[in-house]
Design a binder for these strands. Sequence first.
DNA 1: TACATAATTGAAAGCGCTTTGGATGCCATT
DNA 2: AATGGCATCCAAAGCGCTTTCAATTATGTA
Lengths: 344, 344
Amino acid sequence: MNLKQLSELLGLSQTTVSRALNGYPEVNEATRERVLQAVKETGYRPNKAAQRLATGKAGSIGLVMPTAPGHQSDVHFGEFLAGLGEEAVRHDFHFVIMPADPDDEVAALRRLAISGNVDALFVAYMRGHDPRLPMLKSLSMPYVVHGRSFGAEPDYPYLDIDNEGAFYDATRLLLQLGHTRFALMNGPTHLDFAIRRRNGVISALAERGLTLEEDCMSHALMTDEQGLLAMERFLQLPQRPTAILCSSTVMALGAIRAVNQAGLRLGEDISLIAHDDVLPLLKPESFSVPLTTTRSSLRAAGARIAQRLIGTVKQAGPFPEQELWKTELIVRASTGPAPQSHEA
Amino acid sequence: MNLKQLSELLGLSQTTVSRALNGYPEVNEATRERVLQAVKETGYRPNKAAQRLATGKAGSIGLVMPTAPGHQSDVHFGEFLAGLGEEAVRHDFHFVIMPADPDDEVAALRRLAISGNVDALFVAYMRGHDPRLPMLKSLSMPYVVHGRSFGAEPDYPYLDIDNEGAFYDATRLLLQLGHTRFALMNGPTHLDFAIRRRNGVISALAERGLTLEEDCMSHALMTDEQGLLAMERFLQLPQRPTAILCSSTVMALGAIRAVNQAGLRLGEDISLIAHDDVLPLLKPESFSVPLTTTRSSLRAAGARIAQRLIGTVKQAGPFPEQELWKTELIVRASTGPAPQSHEA
DNA sequence: TACATAATTGAAAGCGCTTTGGATGCCATT
DNA sequence: AATGGCATCCAAAGCGCTTTCAATTATGTA
């Protein structure tokens, strides 16, 4: 069933039927009713490809999904998508996801943009000096970046959380509790959020004249296993850190296991603060020792970005170009006063 | 830059340029070279919407993503997507993802199909007597189902793992170890895999004249927290189970915490086998007590389904209509002989 | 040399929709 | 009765591509 058939069935022109469906005013209400009724009966749906070809818009936002045979999938991607979806479903928008090798992301993004398949772009996994930014700017298609790109002029539309502030505050809390030996379990080193979180820690420490040694820093994929490995390394250091900052609750999981296996007690021998993206599969408050976290919902961020993107496409602005969300520092039992040093 | 402009630039007709690009034989190799060169220089990309309109195909596979404000996102979705993507990227296919309220899935799937936006459909989260099946059959669009629908005639294209066999084998292993009191931590009750896994357990038990009591069964979202709660309930039963079967390693995480908190030892007081979807964020072998699992890679399944789907669209069959993958039963330290009952 | 044949290329139709630029009929005004 | 305005409706062009059918040129054969 297409427009032509439907209009013939109704004895109307395609023009009128099209207008009736798209809410144009110059059509008799009685006619509109008749059209709507026929649509219901026949199950007619406009062909999106044709719509897009005719209008240049088709209610879709595009994103590239990094993937490759060896490439680890990422929980955060799915969570983000859920947020985007939550908003998209309200506006009858859909997503076009282009899988691409991580090395090919710039090109993939460009292909997606000029494919004519999408109205706007969502970009994540930002890096320092991200090469996608100049490309996006040259594109004349709306986009919003999740995160920022360290080192680039912040003149692009983004939504980010205050990673530096979050880890600065978390570090200060631990300092106030008397800790002096810190370690940071971070995400992959080239990612923007990792850079900023590290800076947050370093600057809070610097205020007390402390530094973060190279061997007290780990950069790895944010998985349970990597958390375990990193923590095991930290615990074997001659000067064992007592305060750990961790970029993910998933990673914290493994880290805590390492702590337990070493016979140490979380919140007493070792204090730990992790960043919580509010993943539904993992609730920090129900850990055996409830976890102190810096919290910001990834999903909420996704929903907000979708809102901005869709709003822009539908000209329903204006939206702020830049948004920086504060995180919440939620104190639970995994943080406690620094243990009295045996040597002291 | 569009075809018309490109062809004018080259002094050729659109026809010839189009043919040159799509590998038709009736075009002079020299001309083809010239066209390809121009494409490289201008960065021309065909408009997918137009291509789709003209050919009816556009290299995309569609899926609906269940989502709603309260709806929990699911790790498995992302993992699956990674698998699909891994294969799709090789064939320059992309995905069209339609977010939809879980109550609206049938309609959403239909909309997606007749939107003209996709060449094939992927369907997951199958339930018993799934209402999407009859709809799909009436659709004349290729599709592959991940999982099966309990109670429906198995005459549709699917790829599933042998859930019943997996849990049957796991249960038998525990029986051989002398366990007699079993509990099952399952996924949501209406989902097909949950039904089959339960059946697997029940039939293995039945062979020994044992039954699975109602209070030794939990159906819940497969999250860490639900695992904790379910296990806590089990441990408070008057006849405490010693053998636990669990539908997910994520859930096992919480379950194990409950075991530890109760002062019990995994692999001694309590044996546990979990199903492992091979999520990159969680490696059962690196648990403090390495986990005995039934294993089957979700990602591999995704890749295989993409392969079938894309193959069908490109007429590169034939592919088997039905595939049932065996799972591996991998014995690690979380299973051990049944403890000697104090009462015995 | 003339003619069939193969190799290349192009003009134009069509995919299903939106939208511009009229038509048409009806009513109130003059 | 003639005019203008309004409410409705429609024919046709156009979005950017593929593909059918036809035209043109080059090649080989008798």
